[in-house]
Design a protein around this nucleic acid. Structure first.
Length: 192
DNA sequence: TAGCTGATTGACT
DNA sequence: GTCAATCAGCTAA
């Protein structure tokens, strides 16, 4: 089971909310690692001053020309990778930043990649932490999330959690828009 | 070409 | 609470 293309061909806000509870699965590096998505942020088009459509138009253009359901992976602060799911039709800017996971499979591999053996809640409780734990890098930019070694599956259990909404984290523009979604009271969320 | 910034994290006071 | 790591892509010139 994998989320179909149609899932991503909707507005970023909707996709961000519906991705909560879904399972991000990585077969990168010969080991299966997976986690339940517990925190996301939506980024819109040029009208959203915090979106890469506005602040990195040239770099993001290639990504946004892809159809929804592809990965947009970029480097931040020169050393970390962040994973986004492109939303909407090809040529329409919009994506969802995957900010935090609850580890589901391959915890030993995650701990090894993260260096040492940190506690479980710290393995994937941040956008750069989860890419490191799942071995996601710039090589995976443009990958099709509906097939291949990096994919997102529907929830494996009923979505019986409560969803919280609030402003996005770590940005300096459009700081007040309520485009961050997370699973309420989940310990793996990057911030309360 | 030079200078600046950032959708972060971890170590430290 | 502060700060460094580290660099692609941006702007200004």
């Amino acid at each position: 089971m994998v989320l179909p293309r149609q899932f991503y061909l909707r507005p970023p806000r909707t996709v961000a909310r519906d991705l909560l509870g879904c399972i991000l699965v990585s077969r990168i590096g010969g080991t299966l690692t997976a986690g339940r998505i517990v925190e996301t942020e939506a980024y819109l088009g040029p009208e959203d001053a915090a979106s890469h459509a506005a602040i990195r138009p040239h770099a993001a253009r290639e990504a946004f020309y892809r159809e929804g359901g592809h990965a947009y992976v970029y480097r931040i602060y020169g050393l970390h990778w962040c994973l986004n799911a492109i939303t909407g039709a090809a040529g329409r800017p919009g994506c969802v930043l995957i900010r935090a996971l609850e580890p589901v499979a391959g915890l030993r591999a995650m701990a090894r990649r993260r260096g040492g053996s940190p506690e479980v809640r710290r393995l994937t409780s941040g956008p750069a932490k989860l890419t490191e734990a799942l071995a996601i890098t710039g090589r995976d930019n443009g990958a099709d999330l509906t097939r291949g070694r990096l994919r997102i599956d529907p929830p494996d259990t009923p979505r019986d959690f409560r969803i919280a909404v609030g402003p996005r984290i770590g940005i300096t523009r459009a700081v007040d828009l309520p485009l961050r979604f997370w699973v309420r009271e989940n310990p793996c969320v990057s911030r309360a």
